[in-house]
Computed example of a mutant assay.
Amino acid sequence: MNLPKLITALVEAQNSHDAVAYSSLFSENAEVFDEGKNHIGRTAIKKWIENSNQQYQTTLKPISYKEAEKGSIFTAEVSGTFPGSPAILNFNLVLQQGLIQSLKITG
């Protein structure tokens, strides 16, 4: 599958549980929505992914990537130490100037 470099970097950072590399892919004022909560700003996103990595040890296996009018949808098989693992999740992304501006994770 031919993924954009930014999405490949996101998968690599997640699979190596590198919160610094992961959060560096987001703009300073980016927003992440996951498990019913918003995380706004790169610092909050770094804290969120660190906590998520500690709790769930999540890894991503890419399934598909589609660009849409209002953003992109990256679908992955997500495995980890959470109930229902593995799960197929959609990463709804808005990209701006080579960084992630918005990420909403849905089932």
Rank of each mutant, 00 (worst) to 15 (best):
K104N: 14
E31P: 00
T75D: 01
V94Y: 06
F74R: 02
R42C: 01
S79P: 00
A30R: 03
D18H: 05
P86A: 10
A76W: 09
Y56N: 08
A19Y: 07
L99T: 06
G80C: 05
I49S: 14
G84E: 02
S23E: 08
F74L: 04
A30K: 01
L3E: 13
A76K: 10
G84N: 00
Y56H: 10
Q57E: 13
P83I: 11
N15G: 08
S64E: 05
I73E: 12
G36Q: 01
L3K: 04
A21H: 03
Q14V: 14
G36I: 02
Q54S: 14
I73W: 08
E35L: 15
K66S: 14
T81V: 11
E12M: 10
Q55Y: 09
L10M: 13
I49D: 07
N90S: 09
T8Q: 15
I45Y: 03
L6G: 10
T81S: 15
T58S: 12
K66C: 09
A68Q: 13
Q57M: 12
L89A: 09
E77T: 12
T81A: 15
E77Y: 08
Q57W: 10
S23V: 03
G80W: 07
H39G: 01
A44D: 03
Y56L: 15
G71T: 05
I105K: 11
I63E: 11
I49H: 08
K61F: 13
S79L: 10
F91C: 06
T75M: 03
P83D: 06
